[in-house]
Amino acid sequence: MDLTYSPPRRRGLPTPQIVAYAILTLGALAMVTPFIWMVATSFKSPGEILQPRFLPEDPTGDNYTQVLTRTLFPQWYLNSLVAAAISTASVGFFDSLTGYVFSKFEFPGKRIAFILVLATLMVPTEMLVIPWYVMAQQTSLVDTTLGIVFPGLITATGVFLMRQAFKSVPDELLDAARIDGMNEFGIFSTVAWPLVMPSVAAICIFNFLGNWNAYIWPLIVTSKRATMTLPIGLAFFSSEAGSAWNLIMAGATLSTVPLLTVFVFLQRQIIQGVALTGMKS
């Protein structure tokens, strides 16, 4: 978008530009160096980790074999994927539907219902983990996928974003569909919803990232290795590995690189989506 705009050119770059590039490059270096260190350490042999050097002298892929065969990384991956996908699908649908109602319908009790949802934004998750845990215990949801996802199946933030988004959908369009005899769910799903897909994608992306990296609740609600999500599994594995930094870094690499790859491919959509959630709320 910026590349099409060509500024008045002088020979070379003006000084402020050079300074800007210099600082930005320095900053970029600070951003990626930890990741390079992570990958480099993940290829070191056990004897090399206590040596003060940056790159492995004799790189070995052994750490990855060990992490993949001796731990439950593949299982944790799957658990995270399932949990994040379920909650994202649910959020994408229900947040839209709820936002749509608050945006386009008039009904007795609307104000109260809206305040009820609004009020939940004030309460930090940390206050709810104790009650949730007691509830999960009583309903045998500890160590289940539903137990991991239930608190985040619908989000108030998403509802607000969608309520804003649906305001841009003209009422005439919906009324025209009504005259055509379409039922209200049909109008929502085939007329209104497709028009706000950028917002839906934004909340889905934000939610997926949030769930994928969620820590405190999955930590509390899972107790067995087999039901842990990736961050919990990684934390558990790392503290058990003691000081096998080569293994820990292999685990960290395994847990970050796939998502980072997806991110690089979808970076434009993801960054715009995140910016959108920031601007509207």
Binding site: R70, P74, Q75, L78, V82, T88, A201, C204, L266
Partner: peptide, 29 residues
Amino acid sequence: FLGLASALILAACTGGAAAPTAAPVAPAA
């Protein structure tokens, strides 16, 4: 965006469906 959203929702369905079949194939450990 549309594609992404549907991909995510699709992932949810297939992901959910894949879980039970994939679970027993746990690593040796």
